[in-house]
Amino acid sequence: MYDFDWSSIPGALPFLWKGMKISLEITIQAVVFGIVWGTLLAMMRLSSVKPLSWFAAGYVNLFRAIPLVMVLLWFFLIVPKFIEQLFGLPPGTDLRLTSAMIGFALFESAYYSEIIRAGIQSVPKGQVAAASALGMTYAQSMRLVVLPQAFRNMVPLLLTQAIILFQDTSLVYVSALADFFGAAYKVGDRDGRLVEMLLFAGAVYFVVCYSASQIVKRLQKKYHPA
């Protein structure tokens, strides 16, 4: 029988909290960037200007067809050198967090753009006609009429995607970045208590994600009681 020893957890909490902050930081910026860039991609995809629509379709299909962990590794290898040159930083500056964030943001926008595209298409065409008939430009009808309704319909899906994204941040371990999972792994490895630390980390992920999904469910009931 395995002899559990949880004693290394209390002392490691500050370090784990630091890791959690990195995980949350990556999640939040990827959600924000993903929604903004994803909205633009979705509008391009639905645009009647063919090259825009092709570009957006290509982007979305590319990122949805390759594994996230590969994208992260790829950005970890390429982006730091690129940023160093662009901003004239000394070689060896720690840009792991930056490249992870860029990788996540670009990857997640592909998924967000599909959610947002469905949201835009869920708004009846007559709404656009009514906005146009009142003299609104395309941009105004999008901003004032279509997108507000689309986002209202999409809130649960966007949040669900954010929860998945939060779990996926654990993949930054490939760049040896101490996010929550990475921090737990490091502490467990150091103290020879890997099993306990990973069980603990799993429990924390479960509590965070499960509570978040319960909140989403409640929101869903509030906005779509059917």
Binding site: P124, G126, Q127, A129, A130, A131, S132, A133, L134, G135, M136, T137, L144, V145, Q149
Partner: peptide, 17 residues
């Protein structure tokens, strides 16, 4: 857009926002 802004239109399905 400018032309439409002073041609009123009413739709079958109202299309209020």
């Amino acid at each position: 857009s400018k032309l439409r802004s002073h041609v009123g239109m009413v739709f079958q399905n109202f299309e209020l926002f």
